[in-house]
Nucleic acid binder design. Structure first.
Lengths: 344, 344
DNA sequence: CTGAAAGCGCTTACAG
DNA sequence: CTGAAAGCGCTTACAG
């Protein structure tokens, strides 16, 4: 019933060419005549050929795989990031292996030389601040490493200017009447990761408010974990301190969504009684009509993958820094027409 | 500086044996004299030899890898489950590849024959109810499949008796004076997964309460997402309906933790003013002194891995069902001495 | 631009 | 119990 999977030999025979030629077609080698390539491609098609990645790995002496180490938090941010990385990698016939870092012990194990992650040609490390965990702030690996959503002078780093995002948020909300509140997101203390992005957002936010002549008072800050319910609690808290209309900057879209949810539950009108501004620009924010500071997460992932690919191909230059800028997107939750871009 | 990694040839030469013998030692083949084995092992040690998994895969014609497909939710439950699975797999020199199912589209892609997950020798599917998504409730793959935290008559299934867990909770809380409340956990509607475990827990809970002569009234149920803040909101809600002391069953430890947190914030004493019972038996529950219905997650994962390994080795019998039973663990949050096991 | 050959590092019958 | 050989499905110089 099930015949054996076709191999490169079958393709070569069918196309009437040598093995090497088939391999070249597979690898997009330029030195193949157009017509030959077409013939090989057709043979593959007809045979239903799919290359065996393991054979490729042993013959090529590489793994054709990139490890992505990321915090074990299932948020939309990482979904988008992985999507961005994967897009670039698959195009180059690289596989992506995900290593959720459940603990620091596990991160170290990942880097041991007997482990899967180690057998990989390069790694992308997301959101991890290296300096505090490893000696000299270097990972114990000789493979190329690229950081994303993090920064370190020793590695190529792709990151968002979170402070600028906070500034955009502050400058924007300062235009509205009514008191201004903010929700900061706090990480679980027992995580292997400590992120500074939320603190940076808040710092930029307070900076901009001050410059606008509306300094932020600390008692208008609510701190919660990264959950929608956290946003609900925050709004309740704010409403004990002030009456609508009020303005809320949430450090993450998901939390902002909770503010919106609670506002509606309480019979308040978002965009009028409660103006809500999120941070992230996730797709669900658009559906919810949530104004937000959008970050190009997929593009950041893609860029990180490109930098890594270059390193894996031998690029030896000094560490590179790629800084992305967030953008304010206005929607109904701040009472403005949907999808309009705010240009200061 | 960096010499080439040693191969099986180097080991064979150093130990003064043939290639085959080294391979046999690697694979725990019984037909190797004890002394020979020791010699080979020593040679490996001295050389710092580590087998190349890719070579193994192509020579053996198998991937020596198991795919674990699981929902993209980073909870303690999945951390424990993966740990249990991995323990068994690594022992047998199998690798584990994690595939977080970000969407249904992605699940389908995982099963396509060009994709990584497909190249695997078997798969473990966690928490997924197949029947509603695929024709005839079968996955489009010919590899062995084992379900864990889920049940389907067509596949080996390893699961917890969640209803029993709910019953234990109900029978236990019925012993205490004061009103009884419950918190049900709801899944995000847009997830590719729909889990029935939380509903089963609640059904068992209400069943037991009824049998105890203390039927549960629907207005004492609060529904929230799986977050600690959800527990905080729930307790606030309950306190609007009744005064302490009151009893709360939370469908998940994390939510129960939020109840505890809020109780303390409000100056109430857990175990006296508010009795809280969780569900899961996660390590953090012990630290928090949280009474809970404990499930042996690691053991469930390990069992699933064993069943799969048997199938991969050719076992052809009919689908097997392995049912695990939860256990009530009493701690301070219900006012009882820590770590005592409740035996009805 | 293309073919034939060597080789990647293992596993697996097959003899002995 | 053990060795020598064939083979897994590719990639990569090397000729031409």
């Amino acid at each position: 019933m099930k015949r054996k999977k076709p191999t490169i030999h079958d393709v070569a025979a069918k196309a009437g060419v040598g093995l090497g030629t088939v391999s070249r077609v597979l690898n997009d080698h330029p030195a193949v005549r157009h017509e030959t390539r077409a013939r090989v491609l057709r043979a593959m098609e007809e045979l239903g050929y799919a290359p065996n990645p393991h054979a490729r790995r042993i013959a090529g002496g590489r793994s054709y795989t990139v490890s992505v180490l990321l915090p074990f938090v299932a948020t939309e941010f990482y979904r988008r990031l992985v999507e961005g990385i994967e897009g670039v990698l698959l195009e180059q016939r690289y596989d992506l292996a995900l290593f959720p870092i459940l603990s620091l012990a596990r991160l170290k194990r990942y880097l041991e030389n007997t482990t899967l992650a180690y057998l990989t040609d390069g790694l992308i490390l997301a959101s991890y601040d290296l300096t505090e965990r490893f000696e000299e702030g270097r990972l114990p690996t000789e493979r190329p490493v690229v950081l994303v959503d993090a920064q370190n002078p020793r590695y190529d780093s792709v990151y968002l200017d979170n402070r600028l995002g906070g500034r955009l948020a502050g400058a924007y909300l300062a235009r509205f009447p009514g008191p201004i509140f903010a929700i900061a997101v706090e990480e679980e203390p027992d995580r292997a990761f400590r992120r500074t992005v939320f603190a940076e957002r808040m710092a930029g936010f307070q900076e901009a408010l001050k410059e606008a002549g509306r300094p932020f008072s600390p008692d208008r800050l609510y701190i919660t974990r990264h959950s929608q319910e956290g946003g609900r609690l925050a709004l309740r808290h704010f409403l004990e301190k002030a009456s609508p209309p009020l303005n809320v900057f949430a450090g993450a879209d998901q939390v902002a969504l909770g503010v919106l949810e609670e506002a509606v539950r309480l019979g308040l009108t978002p965009g009028r009684d409660v103006r809500v501004l999120g941070f992230d620009g996730h797709p669900f924010a658009e559906e919810a009509g949530l104004s937000t500071i959008a970050q190009p997460v997929e593009a950041m992932g893609a860029r990180a993958a490109q930098l890594l690919l270059e390193r894996m191909r031998g690029y030896q230059g000094p560490p590179r820094e790629v800084r992305f800028e967030p953008v304010l997107v206005e929607r109904a939750s701040t009472g403005t027409p949907p999808a309009a871009l705010y240009v200061p």
